[in-house]
Design a protein around this nucleic acid. Structure first.
Lengths: 110, 110
DNA sequence: AGATCATTTAACCAAATGGTTGACTCTTTT
DNA sequence: AAAAGAGTCAACCATTTGGTTAAATGATCT
């Protein structure tokens, strides 16, 4: 089933609302890791970590590639970009505005 | 009790993980509103809206000012800024980088 | 004072969450 | 073929969530 943008944001923000999951995201942003490697620093069970990974995967914040008997977990920044874009609208309420910066960047790339 | 930054981010991202609450945020970003005004467009009960406001308030995403028998609800962008700052680290993974833009802005402000 | 409006609180409910342990499925090693 | 390693799935549990309706609170109007 196709998900609406709202539903996708629900999944993304929900995934980010747990500090263990945010920590896992940070871990895999540094280096691709297997599930066991990810689990090592945490006191919770491997099964619990596996559940967290499922939440992150449904939000498309990570990707898993099977590689023999283990898996490689890597960051998928796409969804974070979506979250950032949602928040972007509200930047006008805390300024400084980055609009000028974007124009600048866009022009520079030509 | 004092909350850690992690706990604060938990509250913020959790608050953002519900599309009704995101819609409410957008509503009050346009214009300060009373609770009843906020509730009007939604099919859920006033009590349910009141609960959503409590969640948003605990995340410091809104502020409520008592004004006689009603309340004025307004956006508090501070927490959104925190969320944005958390995400900012991950911008390096989707580029274009905004670093250059920041330098540009900073220099321009001198 | 009594009625009414704005909002919260209380009690309740079904579903989801984050954790556990133990069994199960693959894959690799011995 | 059997054992060990990597990870998931199932069943369970306590807590939280998002909703309801009804009662309670507090301010304003008549």
């Amino acid at each position: 089933m196709v998900k609406s943008q709202a539903q996708r944001l629900d999944l993304i923000f929900h995934a980010l609302s747990d500090s263990t999951r945010r920590a896992i995201l940070y871990d895999v942003s540094k280096k691709d890791k297997t599930v066991s490697e990810i689990a090592k620093p945490y006191k919770i069970s491997l099964a619990a970590v596996s559940k967290h990974l499922t939440v992150l995967e449904k939000a498309k914040l990570i990707e898993r590639k099977k590689q023999g008997s283990f898996q490689i977990v890597s960051l998928n920044a796409e969804s974070l970009k979506s979250a950032e874009e949602w928040i972007l609208y509200y930047q006008q309420f805390w300024g400084p505005r980055l609009d000028a910066l974007k124009d600048f960047l866009e022009k520079r790339q030509k």
